[in-house]
Design a protein around this nucleic acid. Structure first.
Lengths: 132, 132
DNA sequence: TGAAGTGTATTAGTTGTGTAATACGGTTGT
DNA sequence: ACAACCGTATTACACAACTAATACACTTCA
């Protein structure tokens, strides 16, 4: 049974997305393996002090992502394959970059400028890294 | 007098931020120079077909950013110094991008992959913004 | 001085997002 | 069959973001 004991008490963003990230991190790290039973919507909702529908929203996203399966009335289980693990790791990376892109665009930056900036910073960081 | 004639008829994100970006781009490109008079809130609002308060929101942000000055009842003027120009061009970079680059490199990502990923995410984010 | 134009504050309406309340139907084990 | 779970759908409420409506006070100049 997947445990929510280590669910961070405080975090950023809406709760349902924090749940999604929590499960994703578990899959990426190997803490959650294929076939693991996931606590029911009601149990998690009681644990976190939110409405079951908030957990449902998270679980639905995770199911669409292929990380869990659930049948009406029955328990829910994690679905972890080499493919899903790889997909989750890529997705986590994408989310980091995605937030950055939105931020840069909100700041009024053009795509070409962003590309150039990333390239320059990458090289600078590479130089710093090779010194060590 | 700063002209809004070239203000893009359609763009991404809320109007007040598009105004901010428009002015920022003008400052960064040299189209707007120090002491340039900025059209009043009402004039811009009539031009863009929005409420004067929407323009006010943009102008207030620009003033907090040090890119313009305004006194109650009087006209507004651009404030462009070498410092503000530099600040506009690199404001975001120091705050957010550097840490992410290091993170991605430590995660084993190659520069080419990061560039390609940024390009794709940028287009995707642009599409999302245009849907609204 | 007074009219016209200006910046600014206050308030309200609109929309979207996150969460909750409630109810319904399916599965499981006894 | 029935009780105790389970997942799910529908609806409604809370809140923030964005924009608009309105009013007020200041500057400028004939």
């Amino acid at each position: 049974m997947v445990s929510f004991a280590d669910f961070p008490t405080e975090g950023e963003g809406p709760i349902y997305l924090r749940i999604v990230r929590f499960i994703r991190a578990g899959v990426a790290s190997g803490r959650i393996v294929d076939g693991d039973e996931l606590p029911s919507r009601r149990v998690v909702s009681a644990l976190l002090g939110v409405n079951p529908n908030t957990v449902q929203k998270a679980y639905r996203l995770l199911e669409e992502e292929g990380l869990m399966v659930s049948r009406s009335g029955a328990k829910s289980f994690a679905r972890v394959t080499p493919e899903t693990v790889e997909a989750v790791r890529e997705r986590i990376q994408r989310e980091e970059l995605s937030a950055l892109v939105s931020s840069l665009r909100r700041g009024g930056m053009e795509k070409a400028a962003a590309m150039e900036l990333l390239s320059r910073l990458w090289d600078e960081d590479a130089e710093r890294g090779e010194e060590l």
